[in-house]
Amino acid sequence: MPDTAATDFKPLSRVEMAARVARDIPEGWYVNLGIGIPTAIADHVPLDREVIFHSENGVLGMGPAPPREKIDPWLINAGKQYVTLRQGGSFCHHADSFSMIRGGHLDLCVLGAFQVAENGDIANWATSENDTAPAVGGAMDLAAGAKRLWVLMEHTTKDGTSKLVQRCSYPLTAVGAVKRVYTNLAVLDVTDRGFVVIDMAPGLTFDALQARTDAPLHRSA
């Protein structure tokens, strides 16, 4: 575990991480947000910036969670939470919904992950080969199908192990799919050279970031 006292920096909170991703999503994109931290990204995209959120269970144009008294029991997202539909939103069946994903119609998907490798491999659905009841859901479709796959995750596990790795040790979700990673410490593009650092938490140095990362990092040109 690196000595955190060596540098004076403040990792991003989960809310700040979601807001950081939201900043980079332009108006007009069709976007699917994975279950977990990525779901919170939608809260940071202002409604007047028209980004269209998709949910695997056939909802296109998803809006924010309703107040309790306005819950519509027929309208849930892929995380099985109650949501709303924006004006202009629509419903479709599962095969059409996944055609949007698998047919390359989504501009962006943001998923959580256990590990991302420097070649863009992602592991986010099972932590060991012997997982008793592995559950993949739509993760493999989203990872292989969206025009861009970004990952939003903590930079390390709770015990300080880097989640940005040279090669994934967990079962893969997709091969060479990740284009960018947002963590609580940095924003990194996945390139032919490997991870290129394009942004860091305030006060963090490149060397301190490298010390917390298994995969070799590169400075942006």
Binding site: A95, R102, M140, V175
Partner: peptide, 25 residues
Amino acid sequence: PQGTLAERMRAAGAGVPAFYTATGV
């Protein structure tokens, strides 16, 4: 995978015995 599950059903309904997908490669 969820999309493969839906597509396998659609294929069955459309008389398509098998198909190729990037999902899971």
